[in-house]
Structures are given as structure tokens and as C-alpha cells.
Amino acid sequence: MPKRLLAASGIAAYLFLYLPLVIVVAYSFNDSRLNAEWVGFTWRWYKALFEDDAMLKAAGNSLFIALTASFAATVLGTMAGYALHRYRLRLLPVLIMAPLAIPEILVGVSLLIFFVAVNLTLGLLSITLSHIAFCIGFVAIVVRSRLAGMDESLPEAARDLGASPWQAFRLVTFPLIAPGILAGALLAFTLSIDDFVITFFTAGVGASTLPLQIYSMIKIAVTPEVNAVSTLLMLLTLFLIVIASRISPDSVRGK
């Protein structure tokens, strides 16, 4: 393709990717109820946000779920990643990949039927259990790729020098793959705090999260408060992703 056409369409594609997000951020500072004309700069939508009890409660729920789910998913995902690297397994790879490959809505509705079938009241617990389920795979993949880049002879040397398998793992392997585990944990936290579809089906009426709160605001009455909470959520995600990519560059590639 001609160079100039290529450059022009490439720049247009970047604009297409970023313009919508820039607009959301810009209107969060606009002193008008409508997302239309630029009236003037204001912090009032951010102030409104911090006086909105429902929003604060949802933010608290999101934080609690994301912390709990990312912790549990990191433990289970690290085990899975280690097992995938170390052993030839038939079942685990399928269990890791399948939830990532099938449409999210199917995971959401099947978990909804499941929780009702086992008589678990929908709420914080059902959301957290669901988030752990879809985060395990992401952590496992990050940890496994970190293990693949590790020098196998190091834990072997430890074993030759008389370390037990557990000692070799704790003192040699674990410190070497720790950045991968941390990146996986940050990834799981981000995925959990951002999740809408699976949360939507497993939340029931009791518990709300930030994305659910944003959804109901969009559906009922759009105010620039949505822009403000969106901007803050984007900043948080950006921050976490930048840290994760600093620690382990591969981790950010696949979502």
C-alpha cells in the first residue's frame, strides 16, 4: 500500500480508539448537565460522586470483591500455572482455556442457574466465587509463561545440593517467578473490578458493584457523574496495568 495512505489510515485508527475515551474524560469536567456543549470547567461531578451513598457502597463492594477474588485466584492460578508447566496434564489445560474461550454471557447464566440450584443467596459471595473462577485462567497463563522463561537448572541445582522439593520451590523457584505471580494478581484485580457481564448475572438484587452502578445510571438517567466515575475507574485500571507491564511485560498482552 502507498506509504501516505497507510500513515493516514493508521492515524485515523488511533483517533478512533482514543477519541471516545477522551470525550468521556473531558465531559467529566464540564459544568453542564448535558454531554453536549462545553460550558466551563468544574469539579462538581466528582464532588457529587463522593456524596452519592449508593456509588460509595458499590465502590466498597467492588474493592472487597476484587481483593478477595484476586487473592484466591492468584493462589489457585499459581498452582495451576505451575502444574501446567511441570506436568503433562490432560484435564487442566482444557479447564483453564475453556472459560476464556466461550462467550461470557454463557458463563454468567450457567453460574446463575448453579447458585440457585445449590440454594446460595445471590450477593457478594456468589459474585466473588464467580470472579475467582474466571480469573484463575489468566493468572495461570501469566505464571506459566514466567516459568517457561526460567532457567530449569536452578531448582535442579538446589535439589542436587540436598534441598527438599518444597525447599527448592520456596527458596529458588518462588522468588524467581514472584514478579509473574504479582503481575497475575494485578491482572486478576483489574479483571474483577472491571467485570460487568458475569457480575450482572450473579449479583441478584442485593449487591451492587461499580460497573453495575454505572450500568443502571446509563439506563435510567445519564448525568456527568457517570463520566466522573468512569474517569476514576480508567485511571485506576491504567495505573494497575502500567505496574503489571513493568513487572512482567507479557502479562498485559492477552485479555
Binding site: L21, F196, I214
Partner: peptide
């Protein structure tokens, strides 16, 4: 941009 929240990208 695709690490930003799914709903926010729709809302935009």
C-alpha cells in the same frame, strides 16, 4: 483502550 471498562467504552 481495551483495558478500560467495557461499559465505559459503550457509554462513550
Amino acid at each position: 483502550p481495551f483495558w478500560s471498562n467495557f461499559l465505559i467504552r459503550i457509554y462513550a
